[in-house]
Design a protein around this nucleic acid. Structure first.
Lengths: 152, 152
DNA sequence: GTTGAAATCTCTTAGCA
DNA sequence: TGCTAAGAGATTTCAAC
């Protein structure tokens, strides 16, 4: 799909605040509210905009502990297998297949250390996991939403 | 701050769709629109709700390459130093201090491999970095927004 | 302290030039 | 694309629980 500079500025505006009105975005990109809505609808339909969500302080809802786990898998493990397995665990925030020593990197979020330990145990019990290496997050230094490059 | 089950359900609703109306959320939690707004305002003021954002397909805006980089730092490196250094690089999506072998884990997003290479070079040129280990993301398997535990 | 109802104002959204 | 207009939603005020 073709995205012009106006689309990018609309996206940037929506990333900064998903609840701003079309009129407000329009005034920022010099477009009328209906024109903005039409573009947003088009971007949603095309899958460029996946959805609108809310950024929550994890600690406030009681999920204080985070970790990244590198998974080492058996030779014939497919990405699909890892996807299905990791999706089953509610503690999994994100999972990736990666190049390098490990085969996959899993981002976990749990209430506390003991909850994290349980989740880790469950994850490691998956049949294709041969070993794992965990990094517990001590502090989050930077956390930006998806960066939209400014039109050059 | 005190969060009751109604707040949690409002949060869950906003995480699922940040643009839904207060009336819509209200019908789901059996509250009037003004009551929902008051609670949302309170949650925002308390920092539980950090903001509303839009989930973008990174590929659609031309950022196709992702990597995680483990940083090994000199003995007297403070988290603040790492924060300031990583914030300077627009490719840094997130950064954490971690337990384990590495001192920090940095999540990078770039347009392509050569862009990623440049970003990595810049990052490794930071004076406190002694070495690094990169994992290039081959595919994103799972990517959930912040999970809000259902009230039990 | 909270809530819901009503009034006013803004925004959304469809139709049309 | 912008404009207009009708409907829907947001938000403030106020009274009641």
């Amino acid at each position: 799909m073709q995205i012009d500079e106006v689309d990018q500025r609309i996206i940037a505006s929506l990333v900064a605040d998903a609840r701003s009105s079309y009129a407000e975005i329009g005034s920022r990109v010099s477009l009328s509210a209906p024109a903005v809505k039409r573009r947003v609808d088009r971007l949603r339909a095309a899958g460029v905009i996946r959805g609108f969500t809310t950024v929550i302080d994890p600690a406030a809802v009681g999920w204080n502990t985070e970790a990244f786990v590198e998974l080492f898998c058996t030779g014939r493990t497919t990405p699909t297998q890892i996807t299905l397995a990791t999706r089953r665990h509610p503690e999994v925030v994100a999972a990736y297949t990666v190049s390098g020593e490990a085969d996959a990197l899993v981002h976990l979020r749990a209430a506390d250390i003991s909850h994290l330990e349980q989740a880790l145990e469950r994850l490691r019990a998956e049949p294709f996991v041969t070993s794992s290496r965990s990094m517990i997050v001590l502090s989050r230094l930077v956390d930006s939403p998806t960066v939209v490059p400014a039109p050059s």
